[in-house]
């Protein structure tokens, strides 16, 4: 039955340490962390507190958000160091006595305050060959839920880019020119696994998308707010397909003689 949301430690004042700043010419995050005291209400998420700060303390505090229901993936930020959706991070699950740190996604160039420039992701998506069916007569198409399930898991992605932010290949090593990042690995996986797609993207996955740069440390999966098993269900199966094509001599031989 119902759980009553406890008022005991939600009607309290919390300190929010919010990053405020502007980028330098390289998009580096230059700014300071500002403390705001916010009176909390039961059931609040971090985004509620940010809105309270806008309405009561800092009307020009920049934050990107749309739906406040964990469906659009706009309000990604780093809360107490962990890349998260602000609309989904409950405050009554956090320690009452410690400040709550809210910073923009570190991997992307800063625009202002909590807003970062994620346009690189949109450029990457353009490079990927879209869905390519063998015939365009949809009325003849038949495929089954068992096949759709695998694809649909990846299509749950709300493009919050938290996986891209968390991925150390981008976050620490800035391999933006060599590696597409987890979000586009599952975009590729979704196209490759589609039962009716006939395009071959394996060479592209290896050479352009740079799947070899992923060292499967799984932070993308750990942080995905949609609980997509990015690494186990997306990247590793793609790595195995790349092995089939480019590394495994036996499979390569079998493929050559048509037994693969």
């Amino acid at each position: 039955m119902m759980m009553i949301v406890s008022d005991a430690h939600t009607n309290r004042v919390a300190n929010f340490h919010v990053f405020r700043g502007n980028p330098d010419e390289n998009g580096e995050h230059i700014g300071e962390v500002v403390n705001y005291e916010v009176p909390l209400k039961p059931g609040w998420v971090v985004l509620d507190a940010i809105h309270w700060i806008q309405a009561n303390k800092q009307p020009d505090l920049a934050v990107r958000w749309n739906c406040k229901a964990a469906k659009c993936g706009s309000c990604s930020a780093e809360i107490n160091g962990l890349p998260s959706l602000m609309c989904k991070t409950r405050l009554d699950h956090m320690p009452a006595d410690k400040p709550i740190i809210v910073k923009p996604m570190k991997t992307f160039p800063l625009i202002k305050d909590l807003v970062t420039d994620v346009s690189w992701n949109y450029e990457v998506n353009k490079k990927i060959q879209p869905f390519t069916p063998a015939n365009s007569n949809v009325d003849t198409w038949r495929y089954f839920q068992q096949d759709a399930d695998r694809v649909q898991e990846f299509r749950k992605c709300i493009e919050c880019f938290i996986c891209q932010d968390t991925c150390h290949v981008l976050r620490h090593h800035s391999k933006f020119d060599k590696f597409f990042g987890p979000r586009f690995m599952i975009r590729l996986a979704q196209l490759e696994f589609h039962p009716l797609d006939v395009a071959d993207r394996l060479k592209f996955i290896k050479e352009e998308a740079g799947i070899g740069f992923c060292n499967i440390t799984k932070c993308c999966t750990d942080r995905c707010p949609e609980q997509i098993r990015i690494t186990d269900n997306g990247i590793i199966p793609l790595k195995e397909r790349v092995v089939d094509r480019f590394y495994d001599p036996i499979t390569m031989l079998l493929n050559k003689i048509g037994l693969g």
Binding site: N22, Q54, Q58, P59, D60, L61, A62, V63, I111, K112, D113, V115
Partner: peptide, 9 residues
């Protein structure tokens, strides 16, 4: 308040 850069207010 503030500048014209990403200013929700």
């Amino acid at each position: 308040d503030g500048s014209r850069a990403y200013n929700p207010g």
